[in-house]
Write a protein that binds this DNA or RNA. Structure first.
Lengths: 220, 220
DNA sequence: TAAAAAATTTAGACTAGTCTAAATTTTATT
DNA sequence: AATAAAATTTAGACTAGTCTAAATTTTTTA
């Protein structure tokens, strides 16, 4: 049984919204993320439940079934592999690939994914630092911290981003912050929780709370 | 105005069926190629005509407008570029790529196509020898002959195939016939128009009329 | 804990693309 | 040229996915 483009999107979004704990996702949250109305979401939820992809009781929110989780992770694997392809092979910027990968992720064919994966050298992370599920569907979520939680004087490594919006990624580019950057927190302003940080032992940078909140780092 | 997956498929098929001369395509022919019913085709034709993509008068068959031709050629360009990618980069066989390219060809994004084209080194032909339209939409159809038209004793170069069915392509693989093979016609059997041919000055091969009809060659 | 607010679901409707069956037009054949 | 056959179109209906408006359930709050 094949799942439609739309069904795959719902599963992917439910996966994203239910987070690490796999908690219930609300109808309204889905309506917002799918850019549809709550009524439409309800219809789709009934359908996904009938196909055994989600656990759904009226008014109670939804979680993925094991089957639904499997499908969602396959979509995520494809999305992230295509993003690697677009950046590494075609030369796109990390701020340009999301929408295209959003289309490519729904191309069927297991063998295509596996050949793509091999061609790319079995990458473990996508251009935004998000982990790529392996062929068996294992998704290892590294537990990075957020830059806001880093103490004064600490040195951390930038490993990913929470916000994938092009405007945010472009802002990071202009700031000289990229994956792998070594960040040392030199100063924290109590008032607005903005900070001054030194990048790779070089230039010092002023960072707003808004940015700090969305930068994932490895504390050592 | 974006064209749907389905609309693009109709345009591509109309292009293919109207041939070099751009002649009218019948409703029934479209029904057959799209694997739908004639009634469904009629509905779609009305829609495509309204969008200015085809010239359509009831009962008269259809041709592409300039706009429709442009859209069709873009789809063909994408299809053939993706086929090159699948074969050259991912290692698929030429018999395995059609269905996957059928999906990939509908991924929007002009820039994706152009970057893919550059990544592949601006190939002129796809893995089946079909010419790839350039970025401006020029499609240069080389005028190859068919192997059936080759005279006894002639030496020709294999340049393409008319049948793209996996079973046919696999048959060619098993026979040792690939694009670029030098074919010398050693013998023609009047009875069934089968032939014996020598490949690249090496082994001699028996070829049925059915195969000859579908092999495109360059006569020198 | 009852009323108000928020969230969710149901009812009925719309579009794209498809279908079958019937009607119509064109083409082929006596 | 009249009729039969083939091709095409129309009419009416169905599914997937969406919508608005109204009804219902849950949650919040006073």
């Amino acid at each position: 049984m094949q799942n439609s483009f739309t069904e795959e999107n719902y599963l992917k979004i439910i996966h994203a919204l239910s987070g690490r704990d796999g908690g219930e996702v609300s109808t309204n949250a889905l309506a917002e993320s799918t850019a549809t109305r709550a009524a439409s979401v309800t219809d789709m939820l009934r359908k996904l439940a009938e196909k055994g992809l989600i656990n759904y009781k009226k008014y109670q929110g939804v979680t993925l079934t094991e089957l639904g989780e499997k499908v969602a992770i396959k979509v995520i694997r494809k999305h992230r592999l295509w993003e690697v392809f677009l950046v590494e092979k075609l030369g796109f910027g990390w701020d340009e690939v999301h929408d295209i990968a959003e289309e490519l992720e729904h191309i069927p064919s297991e063998i295509l994914v596996e050949k793509l994966d091999a061609f790319l050298g079995h990458p473990r992370f996508d251009p935004h630092g998000d982990p790529i599920p392996d062929a068996k569907g294992n998704l290892m979520e590294p537990d990075y911290g957020v830059l806001t939680d880093v103490q004064l004087g600490e040195k951390v490594r930038m490993m990913g981003v929470l916000d994938h919006a092009p405007s945010f990624l472009q802002h990071l580019d202009r700031s000289g912050l990229t994956l792998g950057s070594l960040i040392e927190v030199k100063e924290i302003n109590e008032y607005d929780r903005s900070a001054s940080v030194q990048i790779d032992g070089g230039p010092t940078l002023f960072i707003s709370l808004e940015v700090s909140k969305n930068v994932l780092v490895q504390r050592r």
